[in-house]
């Protein structure tokens, strides 16, 4: 079944709760679903003969601060009928909540944990919603567009000095050492930090 046929079928079944954007000239077309009916739509897609989306290929999110939404994007594929579909659910950026698809496809378990980890979207009905990739005490949701780095973690700083700076310091100290050993009687000025003098 082509994508537009599937869109028409879903619009006929779910009416206002699904809305398809006009197909773009390049890339994939998608269908926006209201969050309340997401599980119902997905179950319909999985179980109806002729659709049979048995494989939840991907579940991820995209942050849109300008529109103040986080889109959860679901890619579906049917092994039997070889057609695919893109579903999108919009959630408010302040407190994003989307129903979990774990009851429909078990693979949604880890995908949703990842989205929770990186975007902070809460999935209602998920059995075990914890951070997946980042440490449990990490602050913030890094894949949001306005994420600011915390500057290291647990006392490990994230600043790396330019190695050339350190090399210069080593060079200078070696030169100072050499100068000191060459003239054992110290000069009037203290030998430390002769950097500004234009030598070599």
């Amino acid at each position: 079944m082509t994508t537009s046929e599937i869109h028409d079928l879903l619009k006929a079944r779910f009416g206002e709760d699904v809305s398809a954007a006009p197909p773009p000239p390049k890339g994939d077309a998608w269908l926006t679903v209201k969050a309340e009916r997401l599980v119902e739509v997905c179950r319909f897609l999985k179980e109806t003969a002729g659709l049979e989306f048995d494989f939840c290929e991907d579940l991820t999110a995209v942050d849109w601060p300008k529109r103040n939404v986080i889109e959860v994007v679901v890619h579906l594929l049917s092994y039997k009928l070889k057609h695919s579909l893109v579903l999108k659910v919009e959630a408010d950026r302040g407190s994003p909540v989307v129903p979990s698809l774990y009851p429909v496809w078990k693979t949604a378990d880890w995908f949703e944990r990842e989205v929770y980890d990186l975007f902070g979207v809460t999935f209602t009905g998920h059995p075990d919603l914890r951070r997946l990739l980042l440490p449990d005490d990490w602050v913030g949701f890094p894949l949001r567009k306005d994420y600011a780095e915390q500057g290291g973690w647990h006392g490990i700083d994230n600043v790396r000095e330019n190695p050339l700076v350190e090399l210069k310091r080593l060079d200078d100290s070696a030169r100072a050492e050499a100068a000191k050993s060459a003239s054992p009687a110290p000069a009037a000025a203290p030998p430390a930090t002769p950097a500004p003098t234009s030598q070599a």
Partner: peptide, 15 residues
């Protein structure tokens, strides 16, 4: 050595 390719990464220890 220094974080290498992942200087811009938020989760990589720089060295």
């Amino acid at each position: 050595n220094c974080g290498g390719l992942f200087q811009l990464a938020y989760s990589v220890c720089k060295g």
